[in-house]
Design a binder for these strands. Sequence first.
DNA 1: GCCGCCAGTTTGGTCATACCAAAGGCGACT
DNA 2: AGTCGCCTTTGGTATGACCAAACTGGCGGC
Lengths: 239, 239
Amino acid sequence: MTDETEILRLGTRAADAVVRELEARIVSGALPDGAHLPPERDLIDTYGVSRTVVREAVAQLASRGLVESRPRYRPVVRRPGADAALAAAGGVVGHLLRESGGVKNLYDTRILIEGALVRHAALQARKADIAALARALAENEAAVPDSERFYATDVAFHAVLYDIPRNPILPAVHKAFTAWLAEHWTKMPRSPERNRVNWLRHRDIFTAIQDRDPDAAEAALTSHLNAAWEYVRGTFEGL
Amino acid sequence: MTDETEILRLGTRAADAVVRELEARIVSGALPDGAHLPPERDLIDTYGVSRTVVREAVAQLASRGLVESRPRYRPVVRRPGADAALAAAGGVVGHLLRESGGVKNLYDTRILIEGALVRHAALQARKADIAALARALAENEAAVPDSERFYATDVAFHAVLYDIPRNPILPAVHKAFTAWLAEHWTKMPRSPERNRVNWLRHRDIFTAIQDRDPDAAEAALTSHLNAAWEYVRGTFEGL
DNA sequence: GCCGCCAGTTTGGTCATACCAAAGGCGACT
DNA sequence: AGTCGCCTTTGGTATGACCAAACTGGCGGC
């Protein structure tokens, strides 16, 4: 009954209380973004628990993205954003990508979402959005000879599409997609010729959006992404 | 440089090695799904580390959804699925929803995705898919007088849309959406009249899909979801 | 012979303490 | 004033102990 929504439930440990306390101090702003957490030994007598519990609490906060904890440094408070949520999912996604069809499934999901985005852009984009797209497109073109820079501007061009709806969740989704797929994507063989083809596709997408033609925009986008998939599918046999 | 993709990096602890070991034993099937982890004291001398490290390793596995750890029970191995990934993100999402506009952003994202799904359904749905939709629609209609059952069949109807592409990520996304939005959604005032209106919208969506008309399907879907939003927006002022 | 109850054992949760190594701060020295 | 190096702070790990709840097995009753 209850386990439906509590797949990851950790149960009621003493650490949970400390987690809630610290959580409250973070969201209330008492521990502002960027500040570091008090030393563990302070938290011990602040909350009257053992260091074991304190450490587990901090670990939980880290796994939730509320604090950023590097090996021997003081944990840094991070007000969570949509990207933190996606980052938290990253660990599991890594496993999914290793399974058969995992990459394909994720990529198809991306195509689905990005297809919707270009439709949205074609219908809703403001002048400033189209200008931003044009700029990204120009930088993309300028980078054609340099494969590394082309990849960066390629990502940037697609990123603009995620920015247009002005929904902070979407750029985070894009970041997550690129991070998760980057491993497979960056090993794709590249060349100025290849880059130029991709740039042409980007231009098609841009033109369709500029023309306010959602069907053409979606068609150009899916064709672009599917072609890219076909191009790299050999990289990961059957994934 | 490196922190771009390592938002949640925990650094190199001794626990990480144990995590990798156990991870390997899980994905290799040596620890099959449903089995429970060896006792902590066994892991201690299996890997030659202290119990502190073992416990941290198990906690990390739990946060990644590879094991399910309830308070005083042996952790149970869970082969991760897409739903585990989304569940991992749940903790942070809870905070996002408390922020201004958080619910709206999440809901808009849902509309974007589900709009793409109905388009896809209108273009790609097979006979069996349409039959499943028809069945869900019928059950939805039958539940009109019973608001609680209506909510369940409502969710089930939308779920069919996420099943059609046969991409396991999408049903997990749907589960995540409903779980995250349920808190706000279930407190929406309901009545058989209201249910009937919603059912009519569902029928519109179904008809459009059956007619292979993606534009009509998307329009019906967005109209349906936006109307629902307007109806409940008073529930959470300005969220 | 089967089932339920109870004690002993196992096992996860917490505490206390100690030690190490690296980070960070402070002061001396140049 | 700037730099180098020592000392303190602080996170990471190891031990060992204890508790309470879960588990197990055997005993006794039905």
